[in-house]
Design a protein around this nucleic acid. Sequence first.
DNA 1: CCGTATCCCATAAGATACTG
DNA 2: CAGTATCTTATGGGATACGG
Lengths: 122, 122
Amino acid sequence: MVTNTEKPIKKILNKKDAPDVAAIVESIIGCKWSLHVLDQVRRGTNRPGAMVRQSKGLSTKVLNERLNKMLRFDILEKVSYPEVPPRVEYTLTNFGRRFVGVLDAIARLQEECISQQTGEKK
Amino acid sequence: MVTNTEKPIKKILNKKDAPDVAAIVESIIGCKWSLHVLDQVRRGTNRPGAMVRQSKGLSTKVLNERLNKMLRFDILEKVSYPEVPPRVEYTLTNFGRRFVGVLDAIARLQEECISQQTGEKK
DNA sequence: CCGTATCCCATAAGATACTG
DNA sequence: CAGTATCTTATGGGATACGG
């Protein structure tokens, strides 16, 4: 592991090697709205307009920055429907689904902490 | 989960409730050198001077910011020896040991990606 | 050796307006 | 509705010097 100095995205993705997961995690989580956006997509709120509407304080500019970053990291996938008005949906890629598994590890630790604490109150 | 707007540390730690793990993860991993420092401590490089010497580009200022943050989050523990010259050691707390489990999840995904990729080359 | 204080710069991100 | 462009502000973090 270990990522010390932030790698430029180009470097992280310079494949023939497997992706540098730690670097990706750092790059993603280091951005304020990423976890929130990921969570929304996972729960089925996958259209940009809906995400903005449901996220007080999230601007389209920031949202698109996050979405594009996650597209580049192959965490999300974009589907555009040739309709009027335009419709776009973002979904998790295969890698994305495994990536959010890391977030699940966080959620599990959260549960542990809660149950341990209630246990303490005996 | 979901942390959208960054919580102030006071808020994260305002316990009688269990710690907000997702918020802590975000707060810690969002900081550039945190993973590296955690990894160093885990491997036994737990004195500030040693960490700086072994980490090209890490300044004492930044190191101390990270260390203090992790102290506040109860991830690390500090032991000062009353010697001359002074000696200080940082170690993982119980919570800290569980916290780095999240980092292990990252490492596992990394391994998966690597083995999958070599598998592909058949 | 350990830690803090200053100064400076790069950049994340909020607000807003505009194009396809 | 989706996405980009511009401007401004706040802050992380790098370099350096100093005090305990």
